Amino acid sequence: MADQLTEEQIAEFKEAFSLFDKDGDGTITTKELGTVMRSLGQNPTEAELQDMINEVDADGNGTIDFPEFLTMMARKMKDTDSEEEIREAFRVFDKDGNGYISAAELRHVMTNLGEKLTDEEVDEMIREADIDGDGQVNYEEFVQMMTAK
């Protein structure tokens, strides 16, 4: 299944994987998964984290390695993001709930994920998604960005 991913997608997933893999040992533990999910405003229980890991832990060693992570991402993409997942993601970014993602809100979430971005990089990300040019990202623009192939 992971063989249907483009090189660009694999590179993006590698970057995402390293955000989860806090200690850089090449595997994601339940603790690391929990840290990232909490930084995104989720509050999973230990059991939920274990279930999430077990779902993709092909070799049964209790952690997720990069090939397992790729399989999980490929699977998720095949079920292409349901509207509800996209709306949920939008809410994570839209901290003040005004229906727009500002540069400050984007920077806040990315920083929580451990991504240190310059102001230019954040502005560039907003510009790429900002179709109507108002300097922020509304829900429609967010959907376009998330579903762009």
Rank of each mutant, 00 (worst) to 15 (best):
N61R: 03
N112D: 14
L19G: 04
M77N: 04
D65E: 11
E15F: 01
D59E: 13
F69A: 05
A47D: 08
A47Y: 03
A129K: 14
K78Q: 13
E48P: 01
V143G: 07
F69G: 00
F17M: 01
V109W: 09
F69H: 04
S39R: 12
G133R: 10
N112Y: 09
G34C: 12
N54E: 04
M110I: 09
E15N: 02
D96V: 09
I131N: 14
M77Q: 15
S102T: 06
E12M: 02
E124I: 09
T147F: 05
N43A: 06
E68W: 07
L49K: 03
E15D: 12
A74I: 01
E141Y: 02
D96Y: 04
T27N: 13
E141I: 05
R38T: 12
G41T: 07
A2T: 12
I131F: 13
L106H: 09
I10F: 09
I126L: 10
R91F: 05
E128A: 14
N61D: 11
S39C: 09
E140R: 02
I64R: 05
F90T: 06
M146S: 04
M146P: 13
E121R: 10
F142Y: 11
K149Q: 05
M72A: 02
A47K: 08
E88R: 02
N43K: 10
I28K: 07
D130V: 11
M145T: 11
G41Q: 01
F69W: 03
F20V: 15
I64S: 09
E85H: 04
F90K: 04
T118N: 07
F13V: 13
M146T: 11
N54D: 12
K78G: 11
M37P: 02
I10S: 11
L117I: 11
Q50D: 04
A47F: 03
A11D: 13
T118L: 08
L117Q: 07
E120Q: 02
A103N: 14
L117C: 05
L33C: 00
L70V: 11
F66A: 14
E124L: 01
K31F: 07
Y139W: 09
L33V: 07
E84N: 11
N43I: 13
D3F: 00
E115M: 14
E46R: 09
Q144P: 10
T118W: 03
G34W: 02
E48H: 04
D130A: 03
E105L: 07
E48M: 14
T118K: 09
E124K: 12
G114M: 07
E12T: 05
T80S: 10
E128W: 08
E84V: 13
